[in-house]
Design a protein around this nucleic acid. Structure first.
Length: 264
DNA sequence: CAACCTGTTCGCCA
DNA sequence: ATGGCGAACAGGTT
């Protein structure tokens, strides 16, 4: 489920172990999540080092061990991070387990293996370079969004909101939530949105990110029923605004839920 | 048994 | 060269 706020939630799980030293590293080196990674270097680098800090950028997480051992974590579709208790044995889908000196462990679990683990030794990892502004930063301006909509004028707005190069952290449910709040039909081509719709879209992008971080990013609370979130998952959901059935169809290659009478 | 899935990347085509 | 789309990735769940 990892979008912006879920990623932040998972980062915080491992961050609880900040200051603790890694005593042993267990990897399933052949798994697809290590497709871009030298797992031997990862094991050698992390063993004996102390978890010193962590950050996120969109869906990308980074953990730094000591001053110059970096672990990049992308959760893909089904990745999870958690702390496991002393004596925990790695199970089928745990592909990384960092045993800590206090007995606990940092586990990365990912059944579908769409996630990715990266390792870099040095001052600043390459995945920090050329990043777009984060949505919740001051650099994420209306102008940036406006320009991007013109560049992607012929794509449905739903597909455009999923482009991480401009909207880092936005995923499928957030894109649907944004468009529903902005009253914009997901199928609308980006270039066709007028000035008022673009302002509304920009506002709702920021709003949904803030709401998600507050509600899900802090402790994974269940969002209120006034969000689309609680109504969008199954067939037969009802739009809280219109009281009419929500529609589900594939737009931009992804299952999309929207309220036809509400969104134009 | 078949369809479905909160993500990214690749190859093909316009 | 660039942009848009569908398929592929893998395995659990409905």
């Amino acid at each position: 489920m990892p979008e912006l706020a879920e990623v932040e939630f998972y980062r915080k799980q491992w961050a609880k172990a900040e200051g603790l030293r890694v005593s042993a590293v267990e990897v399933n080196a052949k798994k697809r999540i290590y497709r871009d990674t030298d797992t031997r270097a990862l094991v050698n680098g992390l063993e004996g080092s102390v978890l010193c800090g962590s950050s996120t950028h969109g869906k990308q997480m980074s953990f730094v061990f000591g001053k110059r051992h970096w672990l990049g974590v992308h959760l893909g579709m089904t990745g999870k991070l958690r702390i496991v208790a002393e004596g925990y044995e790695k199970s089928k889908h745990d592909h990384l387990l960092l045993r800590l000196k206090n007995g606990e462990g940092l586990a990365y679990t990912d059944p579908r293996l769409f996630g990715k683990l990266l390792y870099y030794k040095g001052v600043s990892p390459p995945w920090f370079k050329g990043l777009p502004p984060e949505i919740l930063s001051d650099e994420f301006t209306f102008r940036l969004v406006d320009t991007f909509l013109d560049r992607r004028a012929r794509s449905p707005i739903k597909a455009v909101l999923l482009m991480q190069e401009r909207f880092p952290g936005i995923g499928n449910w957030m894109a649907d939530e944004i468009l529903w709040r902005a009253r914009i039909a997901p199928i609308s081509h980006s270039g066709s949105l007028d000035a008022a719709q673009r302002q509304e879209l920009y506002k709702r992008i920021c709003e949904v990110c803030n709401d998600a971080m507050r509600v899900i990013g802090s402790d994974w609370s269940r969002p209120p029923n006034s969000w689309l979130f609680n109504h969008r998952w199954k067939d037969g959901g009802i739009c809280p605004h219109t009281g009419k059935p929500l529609k589900r169809e594939v737009i931009g290659g992804r299952t999309t839920c929207w309220s036809p009478a509400w969104q134009k």
